[in-house]
Design a protein around this nucleic acid. Structure first.
Lengths: 191, 191
DNA sequence: CCAAGGTTTGAATGATGGTTCAATTCTTGC
DNA sequence: GCAAGAATTGAACCATCATTCAAACCTTGG
C-alpha cells in the first residue's frame, strides 16, 4: 500500500517528464499528466499540493539527471581542457537527443515558481564547472580568474549556443567543435 | 484627431514599459496598462488586436532602444577589444539601472508569442557583436573563428552573468571587469 | 446648433485550466 | 465475510484575465 502510493508518485513524475519531452511544458496540463499516468486528475493532488510543486520536483529530477551525466563524463578526464570538452559534448549531445525536453528545461516559458528551479539547474552546472576551473587555476593549467564568474558565463554561452540548434532540431557539424574552441580560449587553455 | 489616436497608442506603450520596469511582465495585465495609460481597458483593443501584439511591440521598442544604446557606445571605439568592452559596460550599466525591466526583457517567463520577440532581441545583439568580431578577424586583431557562434555565445555569457546581479539588485565591484577579461580572452584579444 | 460618424467606456462574456469534494471503490484488520 | 477507513474518481467549481460590445460620449462638417 505504501509501495502503491510511492509508485503512483513516481508514475506522475515519469508521465510529466514524458509529456515535457514530447510537447514541452505547454502540453503539461494536470489532466494530461494524470491521464498519461493512468489515474484521475484529482489523484495527482494526493501526491503534490499544487502543480507548481509537482513541476518543481520534475525539473529537479530532470536537472539532476542531466548534471549527473555531465559530471560523470567530465570525471573521466584529467585535464581541464578535456573536462570542459566533455561537459560541452555531453551537454549538447544529450540536449540534441531530446530537444523538446532540453528546450523546456533551458528556456521555455514556465510558471514563475518553476522558473526558480531552473536557476538551481543552471547553478548546478556552474558549480560543477567552477570546480574544474578552480582546480585548473590552482595547478597553473589556467590563468588566474574568478572561477564562479567564468563558470556562470560559460553556462550562459553553452545554453545560448544551443537554443538555435534546439529550435532547428539539429546543430551544424561545426557548431560543437567551434564551441569547444571558443570555450577553451575563454577559460585560457594554452594552445 | 489622428494625432489623438497615435498619442493614445504611444501612451499605451509607455504605460506598458513603465509597469514592466516596476513590476515586470507579471504585473502587466491589460487592465493595469489601460489604467496607467488613462483609458478604459477596451480602448487598448482599438490600437492592438491582442495583448501579445501589444507586448511584441513593447519588447521590440525596448529592445531597439537597448541595442541602439549599446551600438552607439561601441561605435565610438576603434579596436575590437574596446568595442567589446563598451558593449559589456553599456549593456550591464543599463541593465543595473533598470533591473526589473532588464529581467523582463532577458529571462522573465512571458507569453510564448512574446518570447519569440525576445529571440529577435538577442539576435540583434549577436549581429552587432558578430560585425565587430568579423572585422577583428579580417584585420588580424583576432584569431580565425566563426563570428556568429562567437557572438551568440558571448550574448549568452553576458546575459547569464547578469541574471544573478539583476536578482540581487547590484553587481559585485569586480563582476564587470572580470567579465571583460573573460570575454576578451574568449574572442582571442592578444594580452 | 445638430445629427452622423467615429471613439471611448467598463461591465459582461468566455476560455482556460488549476483545484476541490461528495460519491464510489478498494484495502485491511478483525 | 465485513465494517471502518483510506484512496480514487472525475465532474463541478472557481479564479483569472483576455476579449467583446452595447450604450454613452465626443468630434466635426453642414
Amino acid at each position: 500500500m505504501k509501495a502503491r502510493l510511492s509508485a503512483s508518485r513516481d508514475r506522475i513524475i515519469v508521465a510529466a517528464l514524458e509529456i515535457m519531452a514530447g510537447h514541452g511544458y505547454a502540453g503539461c496540463s494536470v489532466a494530461a499528466v494524470a491521464e498519461r499516468a493512468g489515474m484521475a486528475t484529482g489523484s495527482v493532488y494526493r501526491h503534490f499540493p499544487t502543480k507548481a510543486d509537482l513541476f518543481a520536483e520534475v525539473f529537479r529530477t530532470a536537472s539532476q539527471r542531466e548534471v549527473d551525466a555531465v559530471a560523470r563524463a567530465a570525471a573521466l578526464e584529467s585535464t581541464v581542457a578535456a573536462q570542459v570538452s566533455a561537459v560541452i559534448e555531453t551537454f549538447s549531445g544529450r540536449a540534441l537527443q531530446s530537444p523538446r525536453l532540453a528546450y523546456a528545461l533551458l528556456v521555455e516559458p514556465v510558471d514563475p515558481a518553476v522558473d526558480a528551479e531552473r536557476l538551481v539547474f543552471r547553478r548546478a552546472y556552474a558549480e560543477l564547472i567552477a570546480g574544474y576551473v578552480a582546480a585548473g587555476v590552482a595547478s597553473g593549467e589556467l590563468p588566474p580568474q574568478d572561477p564562479e564568474l567564468t563558470a556562470t558565463a560559460l553556462v550562459g554561452a553553452l545554453a545560448e549556443a544551443m537554443v538555435g540548434p534546439l529550435a532547428a532540431g539539429v546543430a551544424g557539424p561545426s557548431t560543437i567543435p567551434s564551441l569547444i574552441t571558443f570555450i577553451h580560449r575563454a577559460i585560457g587553455v594554452s594552445p
